[in-house]
Design a protein around this nucleic acid. Structure first.
Lengths: 190, 190
DNA sequence: CGGGTAATTGAATATAGTCAAGGAAGGTGG
DNA sequence: CCACCTTCCTTGACTATATTCAATTACCCG
């Protein structure tokens, strides 16, 4: 997982609903979800809750806290969860000392920016059909035709902002039209 | 504009439709749009074109190319455009020499990741009403109530993935219900 | 003024969402 | 090895909601 593997993270177990940090707290570092899900929320003046981001397994969150004094949102476990904490001091020290570490983190963030922008662009497409095709093209491997996926179709549906039903239907239609063909674990553009 | 202001960029003028770089080209560096719009696209085997990202004025793109050998999409000017090119060698050298520059760039990318994830989360909300409220809460300034905006409401509508009409209607309804109040240039949550 | 864009509202439509129900697949325990 | 359970996948029918098309008003800038 890059440069930060040199840091031994602190493992924390969270109960469902437990708060990891709250807005206004001094920043302690950033985190990675091991299991479960953690939601970042901001509370409006009236107590209204707005989700900023939900981190699932292997996803990092609060990276920007390395460069801020205080957290500006709350982190709450949605379910029972295990998170790895990368302390601010150790992370910054590593970034200051080790050129490789620095570039690795920077490169990783640059890649994230790229993929996030691509995902956001996919979301701009209203038509389910076109959105699915855009996703498939974006995810296609080297040959530009094959899309391999590890998880379930459900997960993909949610990732591109469609209900599973709408996604299933769209895939079925694309297959019927001969635009794609499906085998277990991967889809091929034709 | 952060650490990279120390680099004197190369200014390029592009005609509408002109290609800045193509997939497979050796990476030369990253870019910032000065005027016009540049679209990053990937071509499917059949010539189908899928947009990955569209960069407008003051937006950077292809930052990740600093850490890659070759571009993996095409950059094409949508309209006549002026772009600033930050050469790879100079950028990496600066990152290698100057600790402040490194942290600055990393911090900037971390912030981008944060805001992009927040935007993506807003898009997950189906209801126009709830999406607009989430956007307002996320954009609210210090006091958590006031949202100032420079551009047009249209631009906001597009940014959160709604048609201008849907956005106007939603704002009108929120105002009628007393959830918000509007004055020229800013909105207040009540 | 006048031209252009933004803002606003109305009405009809289309499309994805929702609810529902059945089948397939995979895993667990007897 | 089978029964059972859970989750995913699939399809159908209906609905809700945002989009689309359209027409009017407000606003800014030359």
């Amino acid at each position: 997982m890059g440069p930060l593997s040199e840091i031994v993270p602190i493992i924390r177990h969270l109960a469902a609903g437990e708060t990891l940090f709250a807005a206004g707290d001094e920043t302690r570092g950033f985190f990675m979800v091991r299991t479960g899900r953690v939601r970042l929320v901001r509370f409006g003046g009236d107590g209204r809750e707005t989700a900023l981001f939900t981190a699932g397994p292997e996803e990092r969150f609060a990276e920007a806290s390395l460069f801020a004094e205080r957290y500006h949102c709350d982190a709450i476990a949605l379910s029972e969860a295990v998170v790895a904490c990368f302390p601010k001091a150790a992370s910054l020290a590593l970034l200051g000392d080790d050129a490789t570490a620095r570039l690795d983190l920077t490169a990783d963030l640059a890649r994230q920016v790229m993929t996030l922008r691509a995902r956001l662009t996919v979301r701009d497409i209203r038509s389910a059909r076109e959105r699915v095709i855009a996703f498939l093209v974006a995810e296609a491997s080297e040959d530009g035709r094959t899309i391999a996926f590890d998880g379930s179709l459900r997960d993909i549906a949610v990732a591109i902002g469609l209900t599973p039903e709408a996604f299933y239907r769209t895939l079925a239609r694309l297959e019927a039209q001969g635009t794609i063909s499906r085998k277990t674990g991967h889809i091929v553009l034709t």
